[in-house]
Design a protein around this nucleic acid. Sequence first.
DNA 1: TAGTGGTCTAGACCACACG
DNA 2: GTGTGGTCTAGACCACTAC
Lengths: 265, 265
Amino acid sequence: MAPSGQATERQPLHVAISEQLKARIETGAYIPGERLPSEFDLGELFGVSRTTIRKAIGNLIQQGLVTTQRGRGIFVTEPHKISFSMANPLIYFDAVLKQQGYVGRVQSLRFQLISAPGEVARKLELGATSAPVYWQEKIIYADDTPIALDIAYYPEATGAALKEPLQQGFTYSTLVRHGIHLNAARVSLESTPATYELSEYLAVPLGMPLLVFNYVAYQGGGRGAPAKNRQPAVCGKTLSRSDWTCYTAEIEVDAPDLSILAELP
Amino acid sequence: MAPSGQATERQPLHVAISEQLKARIETGAYIPGERLPSEFDLGELFGVSRTTIRKAIGNLIQQGLVTTQRGRGIFVTEPHKISFSMANPLIYFDAVLKQQGYVGRVQSLRFQLISAPGEVARKLELGATSAPVYWQEKIIYADDTPIALDIAYYPEATGAALKEPLQQGFTYSTLVRHGIHLNAARVSLESTPATYELSEYLAVPLGMPLLVFNYVAYQGGGRGAPAKNRQPAVCGKTLSRSDWTCYTAEIEVDAPDLSILAELP
DNA sequence: TAGTGGTCTAGACCACACG
DNA sequence: GTGTGGTCTAGACCACTAC
């Protein structure tokens, strides 16, 4: 192994070291699943204190390149990726997982009646802000890895009628099986760093990027029908580990609006 | 201020402290833009060492709640959000920025002819893997904040003909202005933590979540026309700061495919 | 010049995994 | 018991900002 991680310019030692280790991971000198030398040994190899090594390892963790296990060691991350299509935003999570070779499972953390927060009341088109809604939080597993936390709000009637099945199955599948046919959705996608609470639920380090898939799904109406006939059936968001999930879409545009360009310099 | 940040259970001190500070930020006790007490003062307030305070502040940085400035202090992050619509994935970045009240600007980092990497050759539907393509990297600013890094690949003819304008303007706008009309795109969205290099370009901490918008845009063809007539005009990806950007879509589904449910338990 | 965050050290104790 | 990563301390020096 190279001598000390002497910085070439004014780069901090911990960055120089983490970049060296990163290069070794990316060139395959360390392969996925392999254990790195212990913090103590790395300190000796690079000729720096354990604190500096820990900072360097922290850099790698933040970049998703390694994970640590107390008492066991530092391991190179094994890559995974599950793709969800946004072309049909009414994703049957369980179907997608099965298609891609995983066993999907949910663990319900909470299912209770609450007063709708303002945004939820608006999305579910309830008249009153404090109308009752069912609030569910569940963890979604692919095989035995927690990959997403789903937070969903159901109109009171739906939640009361499907209390049991909703706690045991995936949202869309369960709704459709029980006669609530979904045929439209409004979605958005953003990203957020894991908070302390989320990092515990999803077994990721603090700050790990999460994809936030916000959704409102509607029943009734349909493409031809007037928008008034459609009715929100559920809203919520799915926070998924970005190291395990991505979303794809293929969209054709008919006549791009060029007028918008006229206003630009 | 509260006495020492004594952990209630087995929570590490640095977590207890960062959660206390987080609560103060979220309740408005510290407001956006405000300076927190110095690391030394926080150490005295909570009765812990500066190392522990620095770890706690690091937790807040990873969650995007504060930023630090050497020699100046620790500041509560000011929230921003720019929405891009995926309903039309041919986003005119500059138009969206202007609509939302920002001055958009690009800084070209690189514009050069290279041999197409395998994936690029495939996306641009070039015959040979090593066919020449133009490779551009540019930073996109909203006012004076770098919010995204765009990496684009153009077929040789396009790049050669539009060498100057492509280096000064936004991709889609420039192409359309010069007669290359885009009318289809294939996109996907994922998220990734900022590497050391990206964190410097985008002025974010290492590991900050970035949204990765992958795209291939096509000219010719069109909705009715056969897919063969369409031709890739550009491919690449836009890595945008997740604290500044999100993507939205509204999609109606005609007849959800229920057969997929039959195979599930 | 004083104050701030950034880096780095040397050492201690703890909780957990494994043999 | 031994080795591992997780936490925490006390202190040093540096680079940068602001006055």
